[in-house]
Amino acid sequence: MKAYIYVAKMRIQTMMAYRVHVWTFLIMQCLLMAAVGFFWRAVYGGTEAAHGVSGDMMITYTVVSMLMSSLYYMGVEDRIADAVKSGSIATDMIKPINLFTLYFAEDIGNIIFNLFFSTIPMFIVALIIFGLPVPASTEHFWLFLASFVLGYGINWTFSATFALLAFSAIDLGPVFSIKYHFVNMLSGSIIPLWFFPEWLRNALYFLPFVYMYQEPLSIYIGKYTPEECLIKLGIQAVWFAGLMVVFAFAQNRATRRVLVQGG
């Protein structure tokens, strides 16, 4: 455990070494947040509400979604892909630790770093442009936090399972980037699913993506009653557990076939 905490700490220090990257990422995220926020303001115009959601709720949805995405940073994908491609996976495997716990610890480091260097600055920018993104109620806020944590679990496990592809195909090219945009689209992180055609919306509820963004965000803006929220949390927990089983199975298979590049 001491070791994993130290890994997270070292990850934070490493991120600090890349200041330019940090600032450009922050500026990019703030611009995206402002653009999407103003887009919804324009779309709503004089309209009171659409699909039971007002313009203000939609802006709150957008701001919180952007804050979430800065914390949902999935370093595990690039980490595994790089380790396999460069062959440095060998130096990870000579240590008496679990590989994926190591990568998870690094991502915890990423979250802590992003909280201070991305989420909080973005929150301040949002505060200035759009005002405070108020949750529906205190109760909804706590339920959202639980849903956010489960959403993170689903997201991480899904990404880690996906990243295992790197073990069998050496060069995945832009696969992760395609996956990233796919998830963004299908999880409702930018456009909520209630604006999607009904058949697609119904289909998407059978996939894990909505439980990463849309459902936690819907809880935050008060689209569900507290009782409904608990059911949503239950479904999230089932998805999380299911993905964990798939991941455990897949990682066992993948690490058996590990290829190490170079000398």
Binding site: M10, Q13, T14, A17, S86, G87, A90, T91, K95, G262
Partner: peptide, 10 residues
């Protein structure tokens, strides 16, 4: 010899 287990940036 051809790679390192040390953390590059730290």
């Amino acid at each position: 010899g051809q790679r390192t287990q040390l953390y590059w940036d730290l």
